[in-house]
């Protein structure tokens, strides 16, 4: 069960895996996620579905090697199996009827932005894709975005590829210059916070895909709770996508650091592969 059919490195720390999981593939849609465990002792890792193939009965996920659990996952090769895979979880992206859309991805979040761009493209929407990275070396999925988006802008923090700067620069130009029905954003929390700030004065509906710490993914642990418009929401069953103008990003950022000491220890235990991911998609201090 849950055999890995393909494994491909996208950059030094980001990997794409296609996994056999017919039950999860059957109803999988853009915006939803799966939870998998590498082995019998493994942590439950929530990963957004990057692609799914009902006929082959597979889902594709893209993960960044950031901690103990993803390091364990990365030890598995094509032909081997992950212990568990559950899904699809969460609500699909609400994209119906949207004509002109900007999709902003940051770092490994671009892996999640891509299926959304694909779904929008397939329903005939005009899609602007913006992808931000720290540096040229870690740019992923450039060809895929170019092929599917009507306009594509690439930024790097250090200017080693594409535009020098963060994703909000091309975003501001787009929304200044044209009318858009919605902006979707997927990436590090500080990036999404600033995307929301950029679009707010223009009153463009802006949707952020949240990826908080969670365990079961079915509403039971309450660990993934967020404050959205003053109300408590569970990302796993009420989301993962929410109105970015209403999300309390500062609280989400604080909560995402609950286990940082544990995570640092786990990384030290495993090896030093870790690369900081928090600032991908641009610096916003």
């Amino acid at each position: 069960m849950y055999r890995i059919l393909k494994k491909q490195k996208l950059n030094a720390s980001v990997v794409r895996m296609e996994i056999e999981a017919p039950l999860a593939a059957k109803h999988a849609r853009a915006g939803q996620f799966v939870i998998l465990r590498a082995d019998a002792r493994g942590e439950r890792i929530p990963l957004t579905i990057a692609a799914s193939d009902k006929a082959r009965g597979t889902v594709t996920v893209i993960y960044q090697i950031v901690g103990g659990a993803t390091m364990s996952l990365d030890r598995l090769e094509a032909g081997e199996c992950v212990a568990d895979l559950t899904g699809p979880l969460g609500r699909p992206s609400a994209i119906e009827g949207l004509k002109r859309v900007v999709v902003v991805g940051g770092g490994v979040g671009c892996a999640i932005a891509l299926p959304l761009v694909r779904a929008l493209h397939e329903q005939g929407s005009y899609v602007v894709a913006i992808a931000g990275f720290r540096t040229a070396e870690i740019v992923i999925l450039e060809e895929e975005f170019s092929a599917l988006a009507d306009e594509f802008y690439l930024t790097t923090d250090d200017g080693t590829r594409g535009e020098h700067g963060n994703v909000c620069m091309p975003l501001a130009r787009c929304i200044e210059g044209g009318k858009f029905d919605a902006v979707f954003t997927i990436g590090p929390l500080p990036m999404m916070k600033f995307v929301a700030k950029t679009t707010e004065p223009y009153k463009i509906p802006t949707i952020a895909s949240m990826n908080p710490i969670m365990i079961d993914g079915t509403g039971m642990c309450g660990c993934c709770r967020l404050t959205v418009g003053g109300e408590r929401k569970f990302a796993c069953v009420d989301g993962p996508e929410f109105d970015a103008h209403l999300i309390d990003f500062d609280e989400a950022i604080a909560r995402s650091r609950t286990y940082r000491a544990f995570e640092a220890a786990a990384r030290a235990r495993h090896c030093n592969l870790y690369q900081r991911s928090e600032n991908e998609g641009g610096r916003y201090e």
Binding site: M220, G222, C223, A254, R255, T258
Partner: peptide
């Protein structure tokens, strides 16, 4: 929603499951 507030479900699931 501060760091260090957990539902019993979360706390117990981490430990038991």
């Amino acid at each position: 929603n501060a760091r260090g507030v957990f539902s019993a479900n979360e706390y117990l699931t981490r430990i038991n499951l």
